[in-house]
Structure formats: C-alpha cells, structure tokens
Amino acid sequence: MVIPKIKLAMPEKIYRFGSSDEESAKERYMKHTTLSATLLAILIMAASGAVRADAAAGGKLFQAKKCQECHYTSGPAKEKTIADQLAKKGPELWYAGSKFQKEWLGKWLQDPKPIRSLKYNSLTEKNAGNHPKLAAPDAVAMTDFLMSLTSKEVKEGVIKPNASPKGRLIFTKNMPCSGCHQFPGKGFLGGTNGPSLVNAGERLNPDWVFAYLKDGSKTFKPVRQMPVFAGLMNEQDMQAVAEFIATFKK
C-alpha cells in the first residue's frame, strides 16, 4: 500500500540529491527494476526520516536558544509597513532552506562572520559581529531545521554560475546593484547598506537569487530598501545577473 506513494516521490529525490543533470537522473530512474527501486525507496525513507528527526531537534533548539526572539520561521511574510520592518531584530528565516547553501549555513552557524557591514536596520552603527554561535553538533541539527524551511516560489536547478560580460555589465554599470552591495571588484568594492555579496556564490542558492529578483516585493521581502526591478529588467537580464552573482567567491 505504501509503495506506489514512494515510487511517485522517487524521481524528485534522485534529482535533488543526485546529479544535477535531469535527463540522466530520469534515465537512471527508469532503468531501476521494481525490486531495486523498492529497496532504494526504503533506504531513502530511512535517510529522510533521520533528516526529519534532526530537523525536529533543530526546531526545538531554535526555541531553546531563543533564536525566535530575533527571527521568525513561518511564512508568509508578515511586514506591511516600514515600521514593521524596522521593528525586526533580525532577518526572516521562513524560506532559509531555499535561500542558503547548506554547507555555508552549517559553517556560518558555528562561526557567524558579519554578512551586513552595518548593524541590522541601522545606517549609522557598525555590525558588532556578536551573533550567537552554535557548537558543531547543534549547528548540524539547526542546519537541518533551517534547510527544511523552503518556499515553493523557488524553481531549483535553473541558475548555474556564469561570469558573462552581460551579467557583469548589468551588475556593475547599467543597474545600481554595486551601489548598495559589496562584491569582489577592483577599486570600487561596492556600497555597504545591502548584505555583502562578496561570497554570494558560496552563501546563496542562485535559484533563490533569481526568484528574489523576479518576485519583486511580493513574496520574500514586502518592505525593503532594495528597489523592485521586476518590470524594469527582463527575465534574461535577471538570469544573467543571478548567474554572475553565483560566481562571487572569496
């Protein structure tokens, strides 16, 4: 009785955890005999069960460590006015699993180096760099919890790193992106009010960056200091700039 349901979930699982090549992942799936598919399904069930258990432990830890005093973890976005945004003590995390790269998140929770140069919601004070730190085992559980918070607005597997001249031109010249974001540049290193993008290729999910640009202020950040570019830039330009940002490494 359970088996047909598992089979339905299979191609997606292979696709997400396996190779990034959709075609070959599907082919590989088709080649599986029913027997090996069932065996694999049981294995995946067990594995994702373990992840779910860690995510649940991470969720409890989130409360225990009082992370919710500064972050909210259930969508949709709550901010309606500038005052709502300014009242927040930290960024919203309800789509953290779509926004961040897992490996980066696991490391950052143990060694949280400043992402924004300035204190959150301030134009005058520096970021004190005093974000709460987690010990390694706690960071694992917390990462599983945060990575389980995803948004269906993000289509996975579309954006690949690509330092095209077009993407560079948009980011550094035609659009004001570099006016508010630090980036790996020469001479001019970028403005400091937006989150630093110097290591965005390791920190952010490039598919989320594309979704964030396309979405304007609808889903993720209804009240934000970044202008809405949806409707001013076409989708190809947004894709090029998201691909360019995906190449940013420290």
Partner: peptide, 28 residues
C-alpha cells in the same frame, strides 16, 4: 521623512547631504 530615511538616506545621507553609508571609496 520616514520614506526618505528608509529608501534614500542609504545613499543621500540622513540629512540629505549626499553622504550615506553606500558612498564608499570609488563610488562612481
């Protein structure tokens, strides 16, 4: 005033003097 401080002051400065925190060395 609230709109200005939220959206514009990051570049134009809280007093509007053109000296917000986005204006770092080499700003074009």
């Amino acid at each position: 005033e609230q709109l200005f401080k939220f959206y514009c002051a990051q570049c134009h400065g809280l007093q509007g003097k053109g000296d917000g925190p986005n204006i770092t060395e080499g700003f074009p």
